[in-house]
């Protein structure tokens, strides 16, 4: 890989999180981008890029949850990204956390689905990520964060 290019790790859970992340691809042009999401088959949608699958897990299942946390650490150590960009959800918080510890700049874009309030994970991201933005001007204002436009 070309060392002069900025290394971006773009990570999102499945469904709408992933679809919104894919809509940001134009922002990654010229960067060395790796993707991570929950379905191994999503790799088909980002041909030519490194891809990592991880399993989503709720806090209730402690073993599965621990596995997600270690997987996130592993992805960060493997990638050593300069930048972590995510559209959620909860598992990506760990990627942001470990990414930041390893020196990456971290960006949380709260899903457009959260039109009345920031998601639970988004509220945690306020304290973990370098930058957290909402796709709704009013939600952004209520949380004292920026609105950078929407994924639509």
């Amino acid at each position: 890989m070309n060392r002069n290019r900025i290394k971006v790790l773009a990570i999102a859970s499945g469904g709408g999180h992933w679809v919104q992340l894919l809509r940001l691809r134009a922002a990654f042009e010229g960067c060395d981008v790796a993707y991570a999401s929950v379905h191994p088959a999503s790799q088909d949608e980002v041909p030519g890029h490194r891809y990592y699958a991880f399993r989503d897990a709720s806090r209730k299942n402690k073993l599965a949850f621990a596995r997600v946390v270690f997987r996130m650490l592993w992805i960060i150590l493997r990638e050593r990204p300069d930048v972590v960009v995510t559209t959620g959800s909860a598992p990506a918080l760990f990627c942001v956390f470990f990414g930041r510890l390893c020196g990456a700049q971290t960006l949380w874009i709260d899903s457009i689905a959260n039109c009345q309030q920031l998601s639970h994970s988004g509220k945690k991201a306020l304290r973990i990520a370098h930058r957290c933005v909402s796709q709704w001007p009013e939600v952004a204002r209520n949380n004292g964060i920026e609105y950078w436009g929407g994924a639509l």
Binding site: I6, L24, W148, G150
Partner: peptide, 22 residues
């Protein structure tokens, strides 16, 4: 199939400012 220009521009800027931050 792309996010708004506004969001793309901001994200791109965030990414490229990371160099300076480092």
């Amino acid at each position: 199939r792309s996010a708004s220009n506004e969001l793309i521009t901001h994200v791109r800027q965030f990414i490229h400012e990371s160099r300076g931050q480092k």
